[in-house]
Amino acid sequence: MSPPLRQLALQFAAVVAVLSLAWPYYGIRGEALPWAGVVLAIGAAAFLLAALTRQPWWWQTMHALFAPLAWAVAQLQIDPGWFLAAAILLLLVYRGALSGQVPLYLSNRETADALAELLPAHPGLRVVDLGAGLGSVLRPLAAARPDAHFVGVENAPLTWLAGRLLCLGRRNCELRWGSLWQTPLADCDVVYAFLSPVPMAALWEKAKAEMKPGSLFISNSFPVPTVEPNAIVEVGDGRATRLYCYRR
């Protein structure tokens, strides 16, 4: 079962477990369900199931809060159109989180400075940022290395558009809308990614198959499972960022 379906199944199981007890109990007594208490019980049951199945702490928290928050929002009687608008906006900005479990992470300036130190010195260098977001790495690198060419790939439409506008005027920097899985890596000297733990194993297989010998793969914060990096760079920022470097 895929991770999203697994979480839906846990939440559904909590709902069924609580309602299968609450409905008969209050039905026999001829009383209406006390929904405030029921949704709290559903949240507690979902948290317990998530903990028993050893889900990450953030999933446990989300399971505990989902039903109570959904009920609380329902009491506000907000027009459904606003929820549709919010869902569309989230899709436009955070498409990667929905389609590939890759949240929108923005690399900071300290990370860009550390990456600049890692780039090979030869002119004509080609660097690709997979999941470039707003181009927060591309823009400072393009300014620091006018002799190199930088390409970012982003699949969230609104995020891509904002990043592309921010990159305007930089001749050695471009932001493309597309999937990182469809991006060819054969002509890249350096590939940078700041994604999540989920796609790292598959992305490394793609990098091994496509990147040329001697090229460099750099992952921000998330190492490739079971693969020893050639180097680990401590950025020294407030996030305690680490750059995991793998030589192809």
Rank of each mutant, 00 (worst) to 15 (best):
L166A: 15
A46N: 01
N155M: 12
Q101I: 11
P140K: 04
S179F: 01
L115H: 02
D189N: 01
E174I: 02
Y26D: 06
G133P: 04
T183Q: 12
R170A: 15
G135T: 04
L158D: 04
L165T: 08
A116V: 05
V128S: 00
R145D: 03
Q182I: 10
R6L: 13
A17W: 04
V102E: 02
V127Y: 02
F12V: 13
G135Y: 00
S107L: 09
G152Q: 05
P24D: 00
E110D: 14
E228A: 14
A45W: 03
L175R: 04
G100D: 13
A51Q: 11
L106A: 12
V191W: 00
P103N: 05
E228S: 11
L106S: 14
T61K: 13
A114P: 05
G100S: 14
V18S: 02
L104M: 07
P225T: 02
V235D: 00
N230R: 12
V93T: 09
G100P: 06
L195C: 00
E31W: 08
G163T: 05
L141D: 01
R176C: 09
G81V: 01
L21Q: 06
A64E: 00
I88R: 09
M1A: 12
A36L: 14
A148Q: 02
W177D: 08
W58Q: 11
E31M: 09
A70K: 00
V38W: 03
V224N: 07
S136Y: 09
G81M: 03
A17G: 04
H149W: 14
L89M: 13
A132W: 06
V233M: 05
M1P: 09
V190L: 07
L104G: 01
A44K: 10
S215H: 04
